[in-house]
Nucleic acid binder design. Structure first.
Lengths: 200, 200
DNA sequence: GCAAACTTTGAACGATCGTTCTAACTTATC
DNA sequence: GATAAGTTAGAACGATCGTTCAAAGTTTGC
C-alpha cells in the first residue's frame, strides 16, 4: 500500500496556467469560449491534458470559482473590518475585473448545475457576512436597520456595482461615470457622518 | 418591375412562434441553447426555415431585442408618467421574467457584436428617459438631484432588480425576499412623502 | 538502474453547431 | 390553369465541441 506520490512542480505550474488562462478567456471572449482546446492553447499545452487535470469542463469552472472565492471572502471580511467599511466594500464591489468575471460566472451557472451550486454557496456565505456586519454598523452611519434592511443595502451595493461595471465593460453609455462618481460622493458623506456623528 | 408580394399569414404566425420559442428557450436553458435546431423544434418547423426568416442567428437575437424593447420603452415611459413613478418603475424593473431575459441578453451580447450594439442602443435610450424624468421629480420626493445624481438612482434601481431577480430565479438564497420587501417599504415611504410633503 | 507511478501527446469518436443548396411544395396573379 | 413568387423540407458541408483511449515520455522510489 504505497502512498500516492505528490504532484510534480511543473504540473502544478501548468495547472495554474490553465486556471489563469480560463479566467482571462472568460473576460476576453465570454464563458462560452472556455473550451478545453481554447484553454489548452492559452496554457501552451494539449487539450486532453486539461481533462487530465479536470475530468470535465464543469470541474474546471468549479475550480475557478473555488480559487476566486477563497480570496474574495477574505477580502470582503477585511473590507468590512476596515476603518471605512462602506467605502472599502464599494471599492471591492466596483472592481471591474472581479465584477465582470462574476457576471460571466452568473450567466454560465445558469445552465451548469454543478457550477450553480458552487456559485450559490459562495454568494450565500458572502451575503451572510455582509448582513451580519451591517446589522452592527448601520446605526453608526445614522441609518436604521429596521427601516433599511441590511439585505436591501447588500443587494443594492452588489446590484449597483453590477449595473455600473456591466456598462463600463460593454460601453453601453448609460452614464456609468456619473453613477460611479455620485456613489463615491455618497459613500464619502456616509463615512464622514460615521466619523463625526451629529444627530440629524 | 412587379412589387414584392406580401408575406403570407401562415408565415407571419410561424415567425411569431420562432421568436416566442427563442425567448422561452433563453429563459429555460440559457442563451447558448438558442440554436437554429432547438428554436425550430419549439416552433414545430425545420431548422433551415429559421434561416429563411433570419439569415443568421445573430439576426434572430437582434429581432428578439427589437420586439421586446419596443414594449419595454413604452412601459417605462408609462411607469414614469404614472401617479407613483418610483413604485411603477420598481414594479416594472423587478419583474422576474423581463429581468431574467435581460440578464441572458446581457451575457449573450458579450460575445455577439451585432447584439451588443442593439442592446446598447436600447439601454442608452431607456436610461436617457429615466434620467430626464428623475431630474424633474426627485425634488418632489424630497431628494436633491445634485446630491443623489439621477444616473445613480437609475443604476441602483436597475442593479438592485438585477441582483434580487438573479437570486430569485437561481435560488442562491442571499435573502432576496427580505431585500424585495424592504425595497417595497422604502418605495412606499417615498411615495407617501411625495403625496404629503413635509419639510424634514 | 529498474519498476511503478505520474504526466503528456496524438488520433479519433460521436454529437452538435451555423449555414448552404437543391428541389419540391404552396399560393397569388393574371 | 399557367406562371411566377413565396415558402418549406431534406440532405449535406465543414467546424468545433467534450471526451476517451492507447501509447509514449518523464520522474520518483527503492
Amino acid at each position: 500500500m504505497a502512498e500516492p506520490r505528490r504532484r510534480r512542480a511543473a504540473t502544478e505550474e501548468k495547472l495554474t496556467r490553465v486556471l489563469d488562462g480560463a479566467e482571462q478567456l472568460m473576460l476576453d471572449e465570454g464563458y462560452a469560449a472556455v473550451t478545453s482546446r481554447n484553454v489548452a492553447a492559452r496554457a501552451g499545452i494539449q487539450a486532453p491534458l486539461v481533462h487530465y487535470y479536470f475530468a470535465t469542463i464543469d470541474d474546471l469552472f468549479v475550480a475557478l470559482v473555488r480559487r476566486r472565492s477563497v480570496r474574495n471572502v477574505e477580502r470582503m471580511a477585511a473590507a468590512l473590518a476596515s476603518d471605512e467599511p462602506l467605502r472599502s466594500w464599494w471599492d471591492l464591489a466596483s472592481d471591474p475585473r472581479g465584477t465582470a468575471l462574476f457576471i460571466e460566472l452568473l450567466a454560465a451557472a445558469n445552465h451548469r448545475p454543478a457550477l450553480k451550486a458552487e456559485v450559490g454557496e459562495v454568494a450565500r456565505e458572502v451575503r451572510r457576512v455582509q448582513v451580519e456586519v451591517l446589522d452592527r454598523i448601520l446605526p453608526e452611519y445614522g441609518l436604521d436597520p429596521t427601516e433599511l434592511a441590511p439585505a436591501l443595502i447588500a443587494a443594492a451595493m452588489q446590484g449597483l456595482a453590477l449595473a455600473v461595471v456591466a456598462d463600463e465593460v460593454a460601453g453601453y453609455d448609460t452614464r456609468p461615470d456619473e453613477a460611479r462618481a455620485a456613489m463615491e460622493r455618497f459613500v464619502a458623506r456616509l463615512e464622514e457622518r460615521r466619523r463625526s456623528p451629529e444627530r440629524s
